[in-house]
Design a protein around this nucleic acid. Structure first.
Lengths: 202, 202
DNA sequence: TGAATTATGTATCGAACGATATATATTAGG
DNA sequence: CCTAATATATATCGTTCGATACATAATTCA
């Protein structure tokens, strides 16, 4: 848009990086559990800088949600779309779900939206519509992946893309729950083959 | 055990009822979001009574979890076990899941464990083991329901009970998520028939 | 009936909460 | 350079948090 420099003293922190660090705090501690001091500490800035740059705690929270969505940070979805062979793609999706549900990047397990944000739906204004939009968007992208195969002829024309997209979505929710509860990767991987077959059966 | 009355002034509130009310507060507001004042207000008692009867906030929280489990409060599971016809039973299970995910009893939607407690796993000591035990118990009961049908001959001997139990579990998680996000009952009910078929397919 | 025991109600504790007032530092434009 | 504009650092605001001290009420047991 404009590379004209703004007047006034410039920030000495990176906006997006601070946002990611804030997300990580919300992710691990929850909305209420994350204090402003926790946030400023992780973001490497002082209180007034947080309020000047992001508004208040709630607005910062909403901004982390939007950033998560915009950054296309859902690895399983990306994996499903990247692999051309649909069977491998579904398997990759499930493997990636299990990985993200068990491995913890910066202490945060699972999906930021599915495991963390969703719990604040009735509690923090602005969250509900974002979560609902995220579900719709995710399921549309999942269904589109199946439709792509129908176009290629790999799946029959009457393949129930939307139903199976919803199934993938729900399987993910289950894995996220198990991951949170401490299940290990190996235990979850046992059903992958059968589940791939189920998702693609017709 | 003993109907001998205890010495000292008796309580003038019902222990279990207070526990249920506390659970409802945790359910709707989350662990951190539920203040001791919220809790005492809903329970109809004063602070010191709470601490005397239940310990501190965390111990009260753990007690609500145990009470939820002991009360067999998971309606879908009960519905699955109660119906003799396995096809109807699975359908009843899914219908009950959708109902509990969308209707709000005392403002709380979804499953207390699956939608609320799980988010405090890494945060509140004592929660992780309870959640893991709850998953194991639930999946065992789901699988046992299928095994019952194998015994009757309604399902083949090689029917993958454990796999399908896990599937039912994960479908539930998906519905709970959608319910939290504001999906309405009708939208979720569209896939029931196909899902019943999928769960019982062999 | 008095001693022991337990619960209740009021009032409040120190700590942590979210948020901000104030003064200073750093930039662009005139 | 001076002014306007924005960011920073320090210090702290009033509130709410989880948790308790204290005095009083209600019960059992001797």
């Amino acid at each position: 848009m404009s590379d004209t420099k703004k007047i006034g003293r410039p920030r000495n922190f990176d906006y997006d990086e601070a946002l990611v660090r804030a997300m990580s705090v919300f992710w691990t501690k929850g909305y209420d559990g994350a204090s402003v001091r926790d946030l400023t500490g992780a973001m490497g800035i002082a209180g007034p800088s947080l309020y000047a740059a992001f508004g208040d705690k709630r607005e910062l929270y909403l901004k982390t949600i939007d950033h998560y969505r915009d950054a296309d940070a859902c690895a399983p979805l990306v994996a499903l779309e990247a692999e051309d062979d649909i069977e491998k793609a579904v398997r990759d999706f499930l493997c990636e779900v299990i990985r993200s549900a068990t491995e913890h990047e910066s202490g945060a397990k699972g999906c930021f939206l599915a495991s963390c944000v969703v719990t604040t739906v009735g509690q923090v204004d602005g969250v509900a519509e974002r979560v609902e939009a995220a579900i719709d968007d995710t399921e549309k992208r999942l269904a589109a992946r199946f439709d792509r195969e129908i176009g290629k002829g790999t799946l029959p024309p009457d393949f129930p893309s939307r139903e199976r997209a919803a199934l993938l979505f729900d399987l993910r929710q289950g894995y996220m729950f198990r991951g949170r509860a401490g299940w290990d990767k190996e235990r979850m991987q046992k059903d992958i083959a059968a589940r791939v077959r189920m998702v693609l059966s017709h």
